[in-house]
Every structure is written in structure tokens, then in C-alpha cells.
């Protein structure tokens, strides 16, 4: 229970969760601007179903329900799942994700403050493994389609989500990371000029650069207001930047992308500032968090470059989550031996 308040000086766990949710707002706005109403609907369904599942879990475990309604960490988990799901996905997808996240990821391990895995990523990874097709249908933000996705009314979006309108196929497209993965032997400059997902003035794909900038802004706010420490984000972003710089071959057809492309596409920024900084499932000491972040950065780059998935943040976070106690153990041993010297 106390680990949620690790960084808190005078704030309670609930206030911290609330501030983290507020810090998601710039990223949420950028996502909504580029991908339409689907984002808000995802977040809404996630929050609604998560609170219900939380109440069910608490009543199964015979705990007080007041505890659930005051507790914003459930809402935070729900918001993170909602923001990472593809917009305009079928309505049952967020509900299944929240079911797995809250009941298996969180309450099977004893609820708040005891979960070894990040609940949001447990839910997301389950969806990615069980429904790979629905999870890969991202709404396109290319100039040619964006008007369509942006101009969908709220009613139309709801109709698409509950499956009454089948025009969904026309407005989906590949994400920048997918384009890079299946580049068909094109040079990077050709990719940037031919694919509509990259605009001429942009650097990491239409929409995605602004989404990541939004989450970066929110993350910096969290660091300035001392809700999270800089260690884990710095480790992750630093190792991604260094690795992509080492593997950057100035744009051949086998290129994995430039550092700036990796830092501002996919789930890099929301992962670095909002997901891996979860104090419960990450390492505890400062050196441990830095190692934790570096490990996730290496795994993310590795998975983006060579695995079947275009963005492997969820798998990287889960892998690092179960290695975190080991990291803790060895960083403590090293710190102790330096103290005794």
C-alpha cells in the first residue's frame, strides 16, 4: 500500500494518481485531434468497465466499496489502456482488456500496491495476443484520410464501435512503425516522400509526433512537480536514442529508423513517462529505476527492429516487470558493498 506514495512528500496516493491522469491530457488532446472521437470513447468505456470490475473484485474479496470509489489508480489504469488501444475498435475490446487488467493483473495479486506486473500492460498484451487483427486496425492519420476520421461525428463513431456501420475499413491505415517494418526495399527518403503517413515537414509520421510531444509535455510536468523521478524515463529514452543512433545507417532500405523517429513514434513517450514509472511494478531504488528504464529501452528497440510486432512496449514492460525484483536485489547488494568499503 505504501509503495504508491514512495515519491510523495505531502501528497496521498489518490492525489498522485489524479495528477498523473491530468498530465495525460495534452497527449489525449493530440490523439483526439488526429484520430477523432474513438479515443474519448475508448477511454470512457475503459473507465466505466474498470470501475465496475474493481467493485466486483472488491466485493469478491469482501473489502469495503468506498475504498474503490475514492481510489483513482483504477481510473489511471483504465485511462492508460484506453489511450493505447486503437481508436474506433469494437466495444468489447476495451472491456476484455480492463477485465484482465483489473482482475488478473491487479486483484489476483492482492490489489493496490501489490501487483508485480503493470495492470494496464497485462490487459493490453492479452488483447494483442488474443485479437491481433482488431488491435492492428489503427485509424489512419494520413492527409488523404484524416478529414474522414476527424470529421466523423460522435454518433457515427458510436455506430462504428457497436458494429452498425461497416465503413470502418476505409479509414484504417498502417502506423509509421508498421510502414518502417514492411518497407518493401525502399530507402528512408523514399518512404518519407511516398507514404502519406509521413508529411514533408514532419519527422516521425503525421499525428504521431504531436501525440508523443503531448505526452512528453505531460511527463515533464510530472517530473517538475516531483511525482515521478527522472531515472526510469531518462534510462529508457537514453538507451533508445543511443541504440537507434548506433544502428542508424543514414537511411538505407534495411534501416531501422533514426533516433528522432524512434523517440517520437509509437508508444515511446507515453511508455517512458506514464507506464514504466508506475512505482509498484518497477524497481525501487534510484539506480534500480535507471537500470529498469535502460532494460526497457533496449527491449523496445530490439522488439521494434526484429520481432513480429511493430511496437513491443507492452512485452518489454512485462519482461522488465518480472526482472525488477532481481534488479532490486543486485542494486541493493552493490550499494551495500560500496557503503562498506
Amino acid at each position: 500500500m505504501s509503495s504508491f506514495m514512495l515519491n510523495a512528500t505531502d501528497r496521498t496516493g489518490d492525489q498522485i494518481a489524479l495528477l498523473v491522469i491530468l498530465a495525460c491530457f495534452p497527449g489525449f488532446l493530440a490523439l483526439s485531434w488526429h484520430f477523432g472521437w474513438g479515443v474519448s470513447l475508448n477511454v470512457f468505456i475503459c473507465i466505466f468497465s474498470s470501475v465496475i470490475f474493481e467493485a466486483v473484485a472488491l466485493s469478491l474479496r469482501e473489502k469495503s466499496l468506498n475504498y474503490c470509489l475514492q481510489d483513482f489508480s483504477t481510473v489511471l489504469t483504465a485511462v492508460l489502456i484506453g489511450l493505447s488501444l486503437p481508436p474506433l475498435c469494437p466495444w468489447w475490446l476495451p472491456i476484455i482488456g480492463c477485465f484482465v487488467a483489473i482482475l488478473i493483473g491487479k486483484h489476483a495479486y492482492g490489489g493496490l500496491g501489490a501487483n508485480p506486473f503493470n495492470p494496464a500492460m497485462v490487459g493490453y498484451a492479452t488483447l494483442l495476443l488474443c485479437f491481433p487483427f482488431s488491435m492492428s486496425q489503427w485509424v489512419a492519420a494520413d492527409p488523404s484520410y484524416s478529414s474522414e476520421a476527424q470529421n466523423l461525428t460522435l454518433i457515427d463513431s458510436i455506430m462504428i464501435i457497436i458494429g452498425n456501420i461497416q465503413q470502418f475499413d476505409g479509414i484504417t491505415g498502417a502506423t509509421p512503425l508498421e510502414v518502417f517494418k514492411q518497407n518493401n526495399g525502399l530507402l528512408v527518403t523514399q518512404l518519407y516522400s511516398e507514404k502519406e503517413i509521413f508529411s514533408e515537414s514532419g519527422w516521425a509520421g503525421v499525428g504521431w509526433e504531436w501525440v508523443n510531444l503531448g505526452f512528453l509535455l505531460g511527463g515533464l510536468f510530472l517530473i517538475i512537480s516531483k511525482i515521478i523521478t527522472w531515472h526510469a524515463p531518462a534510462g529508457m529514452l537514453g538507451s533508445i536514442a543511443i541504440l537507434s543512433l548506433v544502428f542508424w545507417d543514414s537511411g538505407s532500405s534495411a534501416s531501422l529508423g533514426s533516433p528522432i523517429f524512434h523517440l517520437f513514434s509509437g508508444a515511446t513517450m507515453i511508455g517512458a513517462f506514464f507506464i514504466i514509472t508506475d512505482p509498484v511494478s518497477s524497481a525501487t531504488s534510484a539506480a534500480g529505476r535507471l537500470t529498469f528504464g535502460i532494460l526497457i529501452g533496449i527491449l523496445v528497440f530490439f522488439l521494434r527492429g526484429w520481432s513480429d510486432y511493430p511496437d513491443g512496449l507492452a512485452f518489454a514492460v512485462l519482461t522488465a516487470n518480472f526482472i525488477a525484483p532481481t534488479i532490486d536485489k543486485y542494486t541493493v547488494i552493490i550499494a551495500d558493498s560500496e557503503k562498506n568499503r
Partner: peptide
């Protein structure tokens, strides 16, 4: 359950 979640984490390495 923990083994299952660890296995989910490792399924990301598929196809390397």
C-alpha cells in the same frame, strides 16, 4: 498465473 504472465511477456520475442 505469474508463469502465464511471464510467458505472455516472452511471446513478444516471437519471430526474431
Amino acid at each position: 498465473i505469474t508463469m502465464g504472465l511471464m510467458s505472455m511477456a516472452f511471446s513478444g520475442f516471437r519471430g526474431i
